[in-house]
Design a binder for these strands. Sequence first.
DNA 1: AATGATAATTTGTATGCACAACTAAAAAGG
DNA 2: CCTTTTTAGTTGTGCATACAAATTATCATT
Lengths: 145, 145
Amino acid sequence: MEHFHDHLLKGCLYFTANQLARSMTKLAEDEFRITGLSPTYAFLMIAVNEKQGISQKELGEVLHITPSTVTRFIEKLQAKGLVYAEQKGRMSLIYSTEKGKELQPDIEKAWLNLYDRYSNIIGEQTGIELTEQLFQISNQLEGKK
Amino acid sequence: MEHFHDHLLKGCLYFTANQLARSMTKLAEDEFRITGLSPTYAFLMIAVNEKQGISQKELGEVLHITPSTVTRFIEKLQAKGLVYAEQKGRMSLIYSTEKGKELQPDIEKAWLNLYDRYSNIIGEQTGIELTEQLFQISNQLEGKK
DNA sequence: AATGATAATTTGTATGCACAACTAAAAAGG
DNA sequence: CCTTTTTAGTTGTGCATACAAATTATCATT
Protein backbone atom coordinates (compact mmCIF):
# COMPACT_ATOMS: atom_id res chain seq x y z
CA MET A 1 0.00 0.00 0.00
CA GLU A 2 1.29 3.39 -0.91
CA HIS A 3 0.99 6.31 1.45
CA PHE A 4 0.41 9.95 0.86
CA HIS A 5 3.95 10.72 1.86
CA ASP A 6 5.33 8.25 -0.65
CA HIS A 7 3.54 10.09 -3.41
CA LEU A 8 4.59 13.35 -2.06
CA LEU A 9 8.21 12.44 -1.82
CA LYS A 10 8.59 10.47 -4.98
CA GLY A 11 6.75 13.25 -6.72
CA CYS A 12 8.85 16.08 -5.42
CA LEU A 13 11.75 17.33 -7.43
CA TYR A 14 13.25 19.04 -4.42
CA PHE A 15 13.36 15.75 -2.66
CA THR A 16 14.63 13.56 -5.48
CA ALA A 17 17.21 16.11 -6.53
CA ASN A 18 18.64 16.18 -3.06
CA GLN A 19 18.58 12.44 -2.81
CA LEU A 20 20.49 12.12 -6.05
CA ALA A 21 22.97 14.72 -4.96
CA ARG A 22 23.60 12.86 -1.74
CA SER A 23 24.16 9.52 -3.44
CA MET A 24 26.43 11.09 -6.02
CA THR A 25 28.34 12.93 -3.35
CA LYS A 26 28.97 9.69 -1.55
CA LEU A 27 30.34 8.07 -4.66
CA ALA A 28 32.41 11.12 -5.46
CA GLU A 29 33.88 11.42 -1.99
CA ASP A 30 34.78 7.81 -2.18
CA GLU A 31 36.59 8.14 -5.51
CA PHE A 32 38.29 11.41 -4.71
CA ARG A 33 39.65 10.02 -1.49
CA ILE A 34 42.85 9.10 -3.36
CA THR A 35 43.49 12.80 -3.89
CA GLY A 36 43.13 13.66 -0.23
CA LEU A 37 40.52 16.22 -1.21
CA SER A 38 36.79 16.26 -1.28
CA PRO A 39 35.28 16.62 -4.73
CA THR A 40 34.57 20.32 -4.78
CA TYR A 41 38.08 21.12 -3.60
CA ALA A 42 39.39 18.89 -6.34
CA PHE A 43 37.37 20.74 -8.95
CA LEU A 44 38.70 23.96 -7.59
CA MET A 45 42.23 22.63 -8.05
CA ILE A 46 41.43 21.70 -11.61
CA ALA A 47 40.23 25.20 -12.33
CA VAL A 48 43.30 26.77 -10.76
CA ASN A 49 45.68 24.37 -12.45
CA GLU A 50 44.18 25.24 -15.75
CA LYS A 51 44.07 28.97 -15.27
CA GLN A 52 46.86 30.18 -13.07
CA GLY A 53 45.92 33.50 -11.52
CA ILE A 54 42.21 32.92 -11.76
CA SER A 55 40.20 35.27 -9.59
CA GLN A 56 37.99 34.10 -6.78
CA LYS A 57 34.99 35.56 -8.45
CA GLU A 58 35.61 33.46 -11.51
CA LEU A 59 36.15 30.39 -9.40
CA GLY A 60 32.81 30.94 -7.77
CA GLU A 61 31.12 31.25 -11.11
CA VAL A 62 32.72 28.17 -12.55
CA LEU A 63 31.97 26.02 -9.54
CA HIS A 64 28.65 27.64 -8.72
CA ILE A 65 29.54 28.39 -5.17
CA THR A 66 29.20 31.69 -3.34
CA PRO A 67 32.12 34.06 -2.78
CA SER A 68 32.27 33.30 0.91
CA THR A 69 32.55 29.62 0.18
CA VAL A 70 35.35 30.28 -2.26
CA THR A 71 37.24 32.21 0.39
CA ARG A 72 36.88 29.35 2.83
CA PHE A 73 37.95 26.74 0.32
CA ILE A 74 40.98 28.70 -0.73
CA GLU A 75 42.00 29.07 2.91
CA LYS A 76 41.99 25.34 3.33
CA LEU A 77 43.83 24.63 0.12
CA GLN A 78 46.37 27.22 1.11
CA ALA A 79 46.80 25.54 4.48
CA LYS A 80 47.51 22.31 2.64
CA GLY A 81 50.09 24.08 0.52
CA LEU A 82 48.28 23.44 -2.73
CA VAL A 83 47.58 27.01 -3.79
CA TYR A 84 48.68 30.52 -2.98
CA ALA A 85 47.08 33.90 -3.55
CA GLU A 86 48.47 37.13 -4.89
CA GLN A 87 46.65 40.29 -4.04
CA LYS A 88 46.06 42.45 -7.08
CA GLY A 89 44.09 45.50 -6.14
CA ARG A 90 40.82 44.33 -4.75
CA MET A 91 41.22 40.97 -6.38
CA SER A 92 42.85 37.91 -5.06
CA LEU A 93 44.41 35.85 -7.79
CA ILE A 94 44.94 32.19 -7.16
CA TYR A 95 47.87 30.09 -8.34
CA SER A 96 48.69 26.49 -7.70
CA THR A 97 51.95 25.48 -6.07
CA GLU A 98 54.17 22.67 -7.31
CA LYS A 99 52.44 20.36 -4.92
CA GLY A 100 49.12 21.47 -6.29
CA LYS A 101 50.20 20.83 -9.84
CA GLU A 102 51.45 17.40 -8.95
CA LEU A 103 48.01 16.50 -7.75
CA GLN A 104 46.40 17.02 -11.13
CA PRO A 105 46.91 13.48 -12.49
CA ASP A 106 45.41 11.94 -9.39
CA ILE A 107 42.45 14.23 -9.63
CA GLU A 108 41.86 13.37 -13.24
CA LYS A 109 42.16 9.72 -12.39
CA ALA A 110 39.61 10.05 -9.63
CA TRP A 111 37.28 11.90 -11.91
CA LEU A 112 37.49 9.16 -14.51
CA ASN A 113 36.93 6.48 -11.90
CA LEU A 114 33.85 8.30 -10.73
CA TYR A 115 32.60 8.64 -14.25
CA ASP A 116 33.10 4.95 -14.90
CA ARG A 117 31.51 4.01 -11.67
CA TYR A 118 28.23 5.77 -12.19
CA SER A 119 28.22 5.00 -15.89
CA ASN A 120 28.42 1.34 -15.06
CA ILE A 121 25.45 1.58 -12.79
CA ILE A 122 23.11 3.74 -14.77
CA GLY A 123 24.53 3.34 -18.28
CA GLU A 124 26.94 5.71 -19.94
CA GLN A 125 24.46 7.21 -22.35
CA THR A 126 21.87 7.77 -19.64
CA GLY A 127 24.54 9.45 -17.57
CA ILE A 128 25.59 11.79 -20.33
CA GLU A 129 22.07 12.81 -21.15
CA LEU A 130 21.05 13.23 -17.57
CA THR A 131 24.07 15.35 -16.80
CA GLU A 132 23.33 17.61 -19.71
CA GLN A 133 19.68 17.89 -18.71
CA LEU A 134 20.44 18.69 -15.08
CA PHE A 135 22.89 21.34 -16.19
CA GLN A 136 20.26 23.05 -18.28
CA ILE A 137 17.49 22.73 -15.76
CA SER A 138 19.41 24.13 -12.88
CA ASN A 139 20.38 27.06 -15.05
CA GLN A 140 16.75 27.60 -15.90
CA LEU A 141 15.82 27.45 -12.24
CA GLU A 142 18.36 30.09 -11.45
CA GLY A 143 16.87 32.30 -14.07
CA LYS A 144 19.85 32.15 -16.37
CA LYS A 145 18.32 32.11 -19.77
CA MET B 1 36.36 29.38 -25.93
CA GLU B 2 35.60 26.40 -23.80
CA HIS B 3 38.06 25.19 -21.23
CA PHE B 4 38.88 21.78 -19.92
CA HIS B 5 37.19 22.58 -16.64
CA ASP B 6 33.99 23.58 -18.39
CA HIS B 7 33.83 20.20 -20.04
CA LEU B 8 34.70 18.52 -16.86
CA LEU B 9 32.05 20.27 -14.87
CA LYS B 10 29.24 20.26 -17.35
CA GLY B 11 30.05 16.64 -17.97
CA CYS B 12 30.05 15.55 -14.37
CA LEU B 13 26.94 14.17 -12.84
CA TYR B 14 28.25 14.78 -9.35
CA PHE B 15 28.54 18.41 -10.16
CA THR B 16 25.27 18.93 -12.00
CA ALA B 17 23.32 16.90 -9.45
CA ASN B 18 24.60 19.09 -6.66
CA GLN B 19 23.93 22.21 -8.60
CA LEU B 20 20.36 21.16 -9.22
CA ALA B 21 19.90 20.23 -5.60
CA ARG B 22 21.13 23.64 -4.52
CA SER B 23 18.82 25.53 -6.87
CA MET B 24 15.87 23.40 -5.86
CA THR B 25 16.69 23.82 -2.21
CA LYS B 26 16.65 27.55 -2.62
CA LEU B 27 13.22 27.48 -4.21
CA ALA B 28 11.94 25.05 -1.62
CA GLU B 29 13.23 27.05 1.32
CA ASP B 30 11.57 30.05 -0.14
CA GLU B 31 8.19 28.38 -0.51
CA PHE B 32 8.27 26.56 2.80
CA ARG B 33 9.06 29.75 4.64
CA ILE B 34 5.33 30.19 5.26
CA THR B 35 5.40 27.05 7.41
CA GLY B 36 8.27 28.27 9.54
CA LEU B 37 10.13 25.09 8.71
CA SER B 38 12.75 24.21 6.21
CA PRO B 39 11.68 21.69 3.62
CA THR B 40 13.07 18.52 5.12
CA TYR B 41 11.51 19.30 8.48
CA ALA B 42 8.24 19.88 6.72
CA PHE B 43 8.47 16.49 5.02
CA LEU B 44 9.19 14.94 8.35
CA MET B 45 6.04 16.53 9.73
CA ILE B 46 4.06 15.15 6.84
CA ALA B 47 5.32 11.68 7.55
CA VAL B 48 4.54 11.96 11.25
CA ASN B 49 1.13 13.48 10.64
CA GLU B 50 0.27 10.62 8.41
CA LYS B 51 1.58 7.88 10.59
CA GLN B 52 1.35 8.72 14.25
CA GLY B 53 3.85 6.71 16.23
CA ILE B 54 6.22 6.21 13.33
CA SER B 55 9.66 5.07 14.42
CA GLN B 56 12.77 7.08 13.79
CA LYS B 57 14.20 4.31 11.74
CA GLU B 58 11.26 4.43 9.42
CA LEU B 59 11.46 8.20 9.20
CA GLY B 60 15.05 7.92 8.15
CA GLU B 61 14.16 5.44 5.46
CA VAL B 62 11.30 7.48 4.11
CA LEU B 63 13.27 10.70 4.02
CA HIS B 64 16.57 9.12 3.11
CA ILE B 65 18.43 10.66 5.96
CA THR B 66 20.67 8.93 8.49
CA PRO B 67 19.52 8.00 11.99
CA SER B 68 21.63 10.67 13.62
CA THR B 69 20.08 13.30 11.42
CA VAL B 70 16.63 12.06 12.34
CA THR B 71 17.47 12.41 16.01
CA ARG B 72 18.63 15.96 15.48
CA PHE B 73 15.57 16.93 13.48
CA ILE B 74 13.21 15.43 16.00
CA GLU B 75 14.93 17.36 18.76
CA LYS B 76 14.30 20.60 16.95
CA LEU B 77 10.71 19.81 16.12
CA GLN B 78 10.17 18.83 19.72
CA ALA B 79 11.64 22.13 20.84
CA LYS B 80 9.11 23.86 18.61
CA GLY B 81 6.34 21.84 20.17
CA LEU B 82 5.35 20.17 16.92
CA VAL B 83 6.05 16.55 17.84
CA TYR B 84 6.68 14.42 20.91
CA ALA B 85 8.31 11.04 21.35
CA GLU B 86 7.25 8.02 23.32
CA GLN B 87 9.92 5.54 24.28
CA LYS B 88 8.89 2.02 23.45
CA GLY B 89 11.69 -0.37 24.25
CA ARG B 90 14.66 0.64 22.24
CA MET B 91 12.49 2.52 19.81
CA SER B 92 11.39 6.07 19.95
CA LEU B 93 7.97 6.54 18.45
CA ILE B 94 7.07 9.94 17.14
CA TYR B 95 3.68 11.62 17.33
CA SER B 96 2.59 15.06 16.26
CA THR B 97 1.06 17.49 18.70
CA GLU B 98 -2.03 19.55 18.00
CA LYS B 99 0.19 22.35 16.86
CA GLY B 100 1.94 19.95 14.56
CA LYS B 101 -1.30 18.76 13.06
CA GLU B 102 -2.46 22.30 12.51
CA LEU B 103 0.57 22.92 10.38
CA GLN B 104 -0.35 20.29 7.82
CA PRO B 105 -2.47 22.51 5.53
CA ASP B 106 0.25 25.14 5.34
CA ILE B 107 2.78 22.50 4.50
CA GLU B 108 0.64 21.09 1.75
CA LYS B 109 0.07 24.57 0.43
CA ALA B 110 3.79 25.23 0.37
CA TRP B 111 4.41 21.98 -1.36
CA LEU B 112 1.91 22.83 -4.06
CA ASN B 113 3.36 26.28 -4.52
CA LEU B 114 6.79 24.76 -4.94
CA TYR B 115 5.46 22.29 -7.43
CA ASP B 116 3.79 25.02 -9.44
CA ARG B 117 6.82 27.19 -9.30
CA TYR B 118 9.25 24.74 -10.77
CA SER B 119 6.67 23.34 -13.14
CA ASN B 120 6.19 26.80 -14.56
CA ILE B 121 9.87 27.16 -15.18
CA ILE B 122 10.76 23.80 -16.59
CA GLY B 123 7.37 22.54 -17.73
CA GLU B 124 5.09 20.27 -15.74
CA GLN B 125 5.67 17.18 -17.81
CA THR B 126 9.42 17.61 -17.78
CA GLY B 127 9.26 18.00 -14.05
CA ILE B 128 7.25 14.85 -13.52
CA GLU B 129 9.48 12.76 -15.72
CA LEU B 130 12.66 14.14 -14.29
CA THR B 131 11.49 13.56 -10.74
CA GLU B 132 10.65 9.97 -11.55
CA GLN B 133 13.98 9.45 -13.24
CA LEU B 134 15.99 10.94 -10.41
CA PHE B 135 14.14 8.79 -7.94
CA GLN B 136 15.05 5.65 -9.83
CA ILE B 137 18.61 6.63 -10.50
CA SER B 138 19.45 7.52 -6.96
CA ASN B 139 18.01 4.21 -5.87
CA GLN B 140 20.19 2.46 -8.41
CA LEU B 141 23.20 4.35 -7.19
CA GLU B 142 22.50 3.25 -3.67
CA GLY B 143 22.37 -0.31 -4.83
CA LYS B 144 18.68 -0.75 -4.07
CA LYS B 145 17.17 -3.04 -6.62
C1' DA C 1 19.22 -16.95 33.60
C1' DA C 2 24.00 -15.38 31.66
C1' DT C 3 26.30 -14.22 27.42
C1' DG C 4 27.01 -12.66 23.23
C1' DA C 5 25.12 -10.72 19.05
C1' DT C 6 22.07 -7.45 16.80
C1' DA C 7 19.23 -3.40 16.40
C1' DA C 8 17.59 1.54 17.44
C1' DT C 9 18.96 5.61 19.05
C1' DT C 10 22.09 9.24 20.82
C1' DT C 11 26.22 12.02 21.21
C1' DG C 12 30.47 14.13 19.78
C1' DT C 13 32.44 16.06 16.16
C1' DA C 14 33.23 17.59 11.54
C1' DT C 15 32.13 19.30 6.74
C1' DG C 16 30.08 21.81 3.06
C1' DC C 17 27.81 25.11 2.09
C1' DA C 18 24.84 29.74 2.58
C1' DC C 19 23.49 34.54 4.00
C1' DA C 20 24.13 39.03 5.94
C1' DA C 21 27.06 42.47 7.36
C1' DC C 22 31.44 44.38 6.78
C1' DT C 23 35.90 46.23 4.57
C1' DA C 24 38.61 47.79 1.07
C1' DA C 25 39.54 48.99 -3.52
C1' DA C 26 38.24 50.81 -7.99
C1' DA C 27 35.27 53.25 -11.14
C1' DA C 28 32.07 56.90 -12.34
C1' DG C 29 30.11 61.43 -12.14
C1' DG C 30 30.13 65.74 -10.97
C1' DC D 1 40.02 65.90 -7.48
C1' DC D 2 36.36 64.63 -4.26
C1' DT D 3 32.13 62.00 -3.48
C1' DT D 4 29.22 58.27 -4.49
C1' DT D 5 28.45 53.79 -6.22
C1' DT D 6 29.90 49.45 -7.46
C1' DT D 7 32.71 45.44 -7.06
C1' DA D 8 35.76 41.72 -4.77
C1' DG D 9 36.67 39.61 -0.98
C1' DT D 10 36.30 38.47 4.17
C1' DT D 11 34.19 37.38 8.61
C1' DG D 12 30.68 35.90 11.77
C1' DT D 13 27.33 32.85 12.19
C1' DG D 14 24.17 29.21 11.35
C1' DC D 15 22.07 25.03 9.22
C1' DA D 16 21.66 20.46 7.13
C1' DT D 17 23.70 16.77 7.08
C1' DA D 18 27.21 12.79 7.86
C1' DC D 19 30.25 9.35 10.28
C1' DA D 20 32.11 6.95 14.16
C1' DA D 21 31.70 5.68 18.77
C1' DA D 22 28.87 5.07 22.68
C1' DT D 23 24.56 3.60 24.72
C1' DT D 24 20.68 0.99 25.56
C1' DA D 25 17.48 -2.51 24.68
C1' DT D 26 16.02 -6.87 22.63
C1' DC D 27 16.95 -11.42 20.91
C1' DA D 28 19.12 -15.91 20.41
C1' DT D 29 21.93 -19.54 22.31
C1' DT D 30 23.81 -21.98 25.36
